[in-house]
């Protein structure tokens, strides 16, 4: 027995030495292989990623406490300095918004009456799920967030994520307690949008910077700087009309959009659980009430 054991130990030692000698090369090859495998975007990789983010979430949350305390201490100085300006700006904005609310309520009532008149179903509002940004995913060349809300909070892949002023991105990976948001400025983000005033459709493509680019616009478009960009609702995951951003540059076929949401300073977001009409068996979302006098047959046709 003893010689056999000695032989095994010697073999183990030689394997260990061999591994130590070539570990660098082996690990490099393993890393390269992992890149190739992960590029396939297999569901098990996404599942593994989501599970791992879930598992490390408590640790990240704990480490973030002192970091955020120091950060908020520094930003409190910034706040004191700019408090007077901010107050004046907010008062002004509040006055304008008060006027806007009265006008919006009038339009809303008018819209409801007109919808009843033509028998159109009311637009689906969807449900909102509040979530906190837990960690900044991505890096220099990617833009994503990790949210502290997952499938436990009914977050699903593909849902729209909104900031205080507009669209932030969409959910790309969901764990039990966490989920990942791909920002609209990420290089891989493609979002069907339209111009709010003219209705011209386009695709909003991320550029990894502060601005995103409008692509596939009609050849003779009438886009001007200052035009509002909203979601078109194509693809069915996002409702039409969500505010996305404002056109800031139009030159030589390049149309750049600045998102309404300040993607660098977001702390809380809303995940919009929206179920478009016409999809069967997707579950969730709120059922629209049947409008008074709407012909059943006609409505079904429209939904199809």
């Amino acid at each position: 027995m003893i010689p056999k054991r000695g032989k095994a130990v010697r073999r183990l030692v030689s394997v260990r030495r061999w591994f130590q000698r070539f570990s660098f090369l082996l690990l490099l090859l393993l890393a390269l292989g992992s890149i190739v495998v992960s590029r396939s975007d297999a569901p098990w990789i996404n599942g593994f990623r989501a599970g791992f983010t879930d598992a490390t979430a408590p640790l990240i949350e704990t480490l973030a406490v002192p970091v955020r305390a120091v950060s908020s201490w520094f930003s409190s100085f910034e706040d004191i300095e700019s408090l007077r300006h901010e107050n004046a700006r907010l008062r002004d904005e509040n006055r304008r918004l008060q006027m806007g609310i009265v006008q919006a309520q009038r339009y809303l009532a008018e819209n409801r009456r007109l919808r009843e008149l033509v028998g159109a179903p009311p637009p689906r509002e969807g449900k909102h799920i509040g979530a906190r940004v837990m960690a900044s995913g991505g890096g220099a060349y990617t833009r994503s967030f990790i949210l502290a809300a997952g499938s436990d909070h009914k977050v699903r892949r593909g849902l729209a994520v909104l900031g205080p002023n507009g669209l932030v991105g969409r959910i790309v990976n969901v764990g039990e307690f966490t989920s990942r948001v791909l920002l609209i400025t990420d290089l891989n983000s493609r979002l069907p949008v339209m111009l709010a005033d003219t209705g011209e459709r386009a695709i909003l493509s991320g550029r990894n910077g502060r601005l995103a680019e409008l692509k596939y616009l009609p050849t003779r478009h009438s886009v001007k700087a200052g035009a509002r960009v909203v979601t078109s609702g194509h693809g069915g995951v996002m409702p039409p009309g969500l505010p996305v951003g404002k056109v800031v540059t139009v030159e030589k076929g390049l149309v750049l959009v600045r998102p309404y949401a300040n993607l660098n300073r977001i702390v809380f977001v809303r995940v919009l659980d929206y179920q478009p009409s016409g999809l069967i068996g997707t579950g969730g979302g709120e059922k629209p009430k049947k409008p008074a006098g709407a012909p059943e047959k006609g409505r079904n046709k429209a939904e199809r």
């Binding site: 570990s23 660098f24 690990l27 490099l28 393993l30 890393a31 390269l32 292989g33 992992s34 890149i35 495998v37 992960s38 590029r39 990789i45 593994f48 990623r49 791992f52 983010t53 490390t56 990240i60 960690a135 995913g137 991505g138 890096g139 990617t142 994503s144 990790i146 790309v172 990976n173 990942r180 791909l182």
Partner: peptide, 24 residues
Amino acid sequence: FGAVFLIGMLEDLLRGLPLGLTPL
């Protein structure tokens, strides 16, 4: 090297980057 590889993999998982890029 093994520890650096694992830490890099962890970072890729958390950041949503292609697995293996950071360790490489």
